[in-house]
C-alpha cells in the first residue's frame, strides 16, 4: 500500500514536471495539465491565506499566469514541482493580503526573485519524511512559538495581527517567533 502510493506520487511528480516543461515551451496545453493536477491544492493555499473565496480565485488566476511566465525558470533538479508551485501560490496570496491592508506597492521584481530562485529543495520534498520531521520539530517548540509560526506561515498574519489575536505585546510575539525559528532551524539541521 505504502509502496503503491509512493510509486504514484513519483509518477504524479514526473507528470507535473513534464507538464511544466511543456508550458515552458509555450504550449498552453502544458499549463492546462499543470492546472488540472494542482489547482485544487493551490486553491486550498490561496483560500486559507486570503480567507475570501472570490479574492482567492483572483489570486489563483495570477498564480497560473505567473507559472506560465516563469515555467522556463523551473529547475526540477533543484526544486520539487509541487513546492515550487505552492510557494508561488503562497507568496501571491500573502502579497494580496499585504496589498489589501496597505497600498504601498511591493517591488514586483523582488517577489519574482523569491519565487524564481525556487526552493532549494531536494528530491524528497514531497515525501512524507520531510513533512514528518518539520511537524516533529514544530511540536518540540513551546506551543506559543509553534502556533505563532504556523499562523504566520499558513494564514499570512503579520506581527501586529498575531499580537492582537493572542492579546500579547508585540515584543513578546517577536521574541516567540525569533526563538522559535532559531530552534526550528537547529532541530531540522540536526534531526
Amino acid at each position: 500500500m505504502h509502496e503503491a502510493s509512493s510509486a504514484s506520487r513519483s509518477e504524479n511528480r514526473a507528470l507535473l514536471v513534464s507538464a511544466i516543461h511543456l508550458a515552458a515551451s509555450g504550449d498552453a496545453a502544458g499549463l492546462r495539465n499543470v492546472y488540472d493536477l494542482t489547482s485544487a491544492k493551490l486553491f486550498g493555499i490561496c483560500l486559507r491565506i486570503c480567507a475570501d473565496r472570490e479574492a482567492a480565485e483572483d489570486v489563483l488566476q495570477d498564480v497560473y499566469v505567473k507559472v506560465w511566465r516563469r515555467a522556463a525558470s523551473f529547475d526540477a533538479s533543484r526544486a520539487s514541482p509541487v513546492s515550487w508551485l505552492a510557494t508561488i501560490a503562497r507568496n501571491a496570496a500573502v502579497d494580496w493580503r499585504r496589498a489589501e491592508h496597505r497600498h504601498d506597492a511591493m517591488p514586483d521584481k523582488a517577489m519574482a526573485a523569491i519565487a524564481d530562485d525556487a526552493p532549494l529543495a531536494d528530491a524528497l520534498m514531497e515525501g512524507d519524511e520531510e513533512r514528518r520531521r518539520l511537524l516533529v520539530c514544530l511540536e518540540g517548540l513551546p506551543s506559543e512559538q509553534s502556533s505563532a509560526i504556523r499562523s504566520a506561515f499558513l494564514q499570512g498574519f503579520t506581527y501586529q495581527q498575531l499580537a492582537e489575536r493572542s492579546d500579547t505585546p508585540l515584543g513578546t510575539v517577536k521574541s516567540w517567533i525569533r526563538r522559535g525559528m532559531l530552534r526550528l532551524k537547529d532541530c531540522l539541521g540536526h534531526g
Partner: peptide, 21 residues
C-alpha cells in the same frame, strides 16, 4: 521557505470554480 513549505501540504485541497481557468 523550503523548510516550511511541507506545512502547505497540510492544507486541504479545494476545487476552484471554472471561471479561474
Amino acid at each position: 521557505t523550503t523548510r516550511l513549505s511541507p506545512l502547505l501540504d497540510t492544507l486541504p485541497p479545494v476545487l476552484p470554480s471554472s471561471r479561474v481557468w
